[in-house]
Each structure stands twice: as C-alpha cells, then as structure tokens.
Amino acid sequence: MRPSAAETARTLARGRLPGLVRFDDGLLGGLPVAGLQHATDGLGRPLLLAPAGEELATRLARTEGPVRLSLSVDDVPPRLGAPSLGRVRIVGDLHPVPPAETREAVLEYAVSSADPDLFDVGDRVAIHRLEPSRITLNRGGATEILDPAAYAAAEPDPLHECEQDLLHDLADHHLAQLEDYLRRLLDDPGAFANGSPQAMRLDRYGIVLDLSPAAGSGERRRWMRLEFARPVAGQHDLAHLLHPILCAHRRCDAEEE
C-alpha cells in the first residue's frame, strides 16, 4: 500500500514546508509563506497568520469580503536524489476566522505548527482560513484534481516531520542490517557488491530504496519500495515494526547476548 493522492496532499499542505501564496489579480505575483506562516486545520483547510504591517494584512485591510487566492507547497526531498512527493495547490477564498472559532483554529494550527505568533492572535496577528474550491496534486509532471471530501478525510503522514532524521539514523546505524535483510529478500548473496542500498524516502506505509550500484559503474538506477505489513501510527510504532526486520539475522542475536 502507498500513500493516496489525498494523503500526500494533506502531508504537503500541513505547514511543515514553505509555501507560496498567489492572488488572482496577479498584483503581488507571489508572496512567500515564510512571511505569513501557514498550517492546516483538522479538515486540511489552510490557516494563514497575518501579522499587522505585513503585506497580506495590508492587502486584506483594503479588501471587502473574501480574497481569492491559491497556496502552493512543493515537497523538499529529505536526501539528495530522493524522489519528490510533488506539489499541492489549493485554490479558494480566504476568510477571517470568526471570533467564536478563533480558539479552536489556534489549537488546530498549533497541532500542525507551534508558531510563536499564535500567542498574538487577536492582538497584532489575525488568523484566516482558506476554504478550498479546487485542490490539485502534481506528481511526475501529471496533475490530478482531488475530491474535496477525500482530501478532508485523509490524514497527513505522521512520519513526515521526522523523515530526514529517521533516514539518517538508518544510514548511520542500521545500513548493514538493512543490506543483509535485502540480500535475503532478493535471494542474492552477491547483491550490492558494488555499492550499498540507500533508504531515500520513508512514509507510514513503507521505505523507498535506491539499489543503484556505485557511481561510474554504467548500470541503470534501480528503485525498490519495501512496504510495511501495516501502516505505522508514528515514530515509536515504526521502531517496533522495523525491529524484527533489521534484527532478523543472527547478527542481532549475537549483539543482544
């Protein structure tokens, strides 16, 4: 099993990655979200913080009613040469969060991103919600229009925020065990004689591995996806799931003695 398009879109939009806001009239061209932080609520609707004096707050103060805009977020692969998850683009109308819903919106924002500006919401910072009317995911040059209900029902990947650290840990501390496991899985004792496999992506459903030989060998790049027996709930659950995989050989038994 692999992440669905809706799950991938929710993961990208969550607020862990920088994004870009564009207004329909094109006057601002593109406004980096680094200057106006974003996250998503429990239904995946983007929440934008607009600190007083910044460009978005100034623009909203001059406009009556909702503002039509889009939020685009590109994946940032955790390792050089790793495949990208793509780009999510959410188009819709931006509305101020009503006062009666502000506390809940702040709490939902904090779940995605604990931004210090949240303490100033209602004072010098305003919080707005983007109501999606069109959601697309571009992967590998192909654009898919997502069903809004499927997007709202999907969950962001729980490993995304720590993916890079987990991949580094596999490379630094468990490469020998992973290589041994793959040799037995492929039934090829001579596999990887010209270079060790590298874990390049990690999600709740599995690991994407680069099985390419050493640079300069002239052989084609080979990819493999190692899928878990079940989706993992988080980093702690992942450790329990990987332990029998990485310690399936007698080497682990010897280390424990």
Rank of each mutant, 00 (worst) to 15 (best):
140 G>K: 12
223 W>N: 04
240 H>T: 06
110 A>T: 06
124 R>Y: 02
55 E>G: 06
221 R>V: 07
105 A>Y: 05
42 G>W: 06
209 L>Q: 07
143 T>W: 15
86 G>P: 09
107 L>S: 05
127 I>K: 06
217 S>H: 05
186 L>S: 04
93 D>Y: 14
45 R>L: 07
154 A>K: 01
106 V>G: 06
116 P>M: 04
236 H>L: 11
148 P>C: 00
185 L>R: 15
177 Q>C: 06
68 R>E: 04
103 R>E: 13
47 L>G: 00
56 L>Q: 05
257 E>Y: 14
105 A>K: 02
238 L>N: 03
222 R>F: 05
76 V>P: 01
55 E>S: 07
76 V>T: 03
139 R>P: 04
253 D>I: 10
26 G>S: 04
254 A>K: 12
30 G>R: 14
185 L>I: 05
159 L>A: 11
37 Q>F: 08
158 P>G: 13
226 L>C: 03
91 V>F: 07
241 L>F: 12
232 V>W: 12
44 G>N: 01
157 D>R: 15
154 A>T: 00
32 P>L: 13
149 A>V: 10
254 A>N: 08
93 D>Q: 15
160 H>S: 01
108 E>P: 14
19 G>Y: 03
245 I>C: 07
16 R>V: 05
108 E>K: 15
3 P>W: 00
37 Q>N: 07
